[in-house]
Design a protein around this nucleic acid. Structure first.
Lengths: 218, 218
DNA sequence: CAGGGCATGTGAAACCTTTCACAATAAGAA
DNA sequence: TTCTTATTGTGAAAGGTTTCACATGCCCTG
């Protein structure tokens, strides 16, 4: 129940990503009114091993009951605290092209507490237009508006060619966490956390798998 | 230059994903008319180590010249063959909500040779409507149309609640590769390759990092 | 055409992650 | 209360990935 003493435990990226999976699964289980779940069943649902589930959770504490499993609601709550999603995050979207406007309407982000408060673009035709109740702001006002609205995370959905330029502005405005959808590797200072979502990568992975799968017969 | 004898080399997922990064970087370098690149410089651009770049490439052959580096165009061509993106892949989109229609317009997929040929939905109001030159088809016609158009990859952008039902239909239609954008873990037979793109996961990762970063001072 | 410089290709070492295997222990039955 | 059953929590082992370090060998200069 109690968290471990916070030594300089280094938690791996894979563990954090799996916590997201557990969180999603637990949310579903909670809706189904299931009270407890074993590592075995949780692992089956997320295509992992029971040992992995237990090991992942053990980095953060002892949440289960031997012989019984984990209490669904309580574990979900614990993971939400670990991931920091037990609160609201103010988010701004930069770029209102296809991807940007789709993500503004994407309810999953809101459900997890990531609330898009501001939208920016540099296209005069888009500035002032309404997207899901939000008015598109001029990117030249970004620094001031980000500060005024206490934005902590910026989602970048601009063309690759301008992405580095825009990210420099975002960094200059004091933002420390950026989720980038432009298909390019951006350079940021070491105190800024940048994650790049590369949607082509997954298609290329499928392409690789189809291309290199063992032939139908020998 | 010549590929290694195809033993039962097991190539790791991370290596394949990095090949995607190299491919993207090389495409840019080619546009900039750079003729050669060293592992050191390629690593710097993608925030990796030179040794990693060389090791990754060495699984597939010897593409570089000692003392000089790798020939940009040639290496790009080689990687495109490895990833299987030196050809066109026929793709179908299932679901024309926010994400689905954004991805239909996403030029990056086309540029990489992933051509969306068909769009499906089950909403009568959407069926027959035009998205970027493609008419939305009735999902009940999916099996026939997928076969007729030689579709090899399906992108799934439907609500989580119906995703398992739809993916069962896609599998029944004989599709072996699926890219899923629904935030849920889907079950497919072992001969079907499924990748799930979880966009909330990256935001949650940022949330975790912001929440657990070392405090400003001690 | 020989020699210096440079960057590759690659075994081996270091490091990291996952899996194993079992002691610990809570719940419920008898 | 004691016993049985189930499942956790976790060191240790196994397995996998990254980094090191250097021999190799190509290019270019003189």
């Amino acid at each position: 129940m109690v968290k471990k003493s916070d030594g300089k435990r280094k938690i791996s990226e894979s563990t954090i990503k799996r916590l997201s999976l557990y969180y999603r699964a637990l949310s579903l289980l909670e809706k189904e009114n299931q009270e407890t779940i074993s590592s075995k069943e949780l692992a089956r649902r997320e295509k992992l091993t029971p040992a992995q589930v237990r090991k992942d959770l053990s980095f953060f504490g002892s949440f289960g009951t031997r012989g019984l499993g984990y209490p669904v609601s309580e574990l979900k709550q614990q993971i939400s605290e670990i991931l920091g999603v037990n609160r609201v995050w103010n988010v701004a979207m930069v770029g209102v092209g296809n991807i940007g406007s789709a993500l503004v309407s994407y309810k999953e982000f809101q459900k997890q507490g990531f609330i898009i408060k501001l939208i920016f673009d540099n296209d005069q035709r888009k500035i002032g237009s309404n997207h899901k109740g939000l008015i598109v702001s001029d990117i030249r006002e970004m620094a001031r508006l980000l500060r005024e609205h206490h934005i902590e995370i910026v989602i970048l959905a601009v063309p690759a060619i301008v992405a580095q330029y825009i990210v420099d502005e975002v960094v200059a405005a004091g933002i420390k966490a950026i989720l980038n959808f432009a298909p390019i590797n951006l350079q940021v200072p070491p105190d800024v956390y940048l994650r790049t979502e590369n949607m082509s990568m997954e298609l290329e992975y499928l392409s690789f798998t189809l291309t290199n799968r063992r032939p139908p017969a020998e």
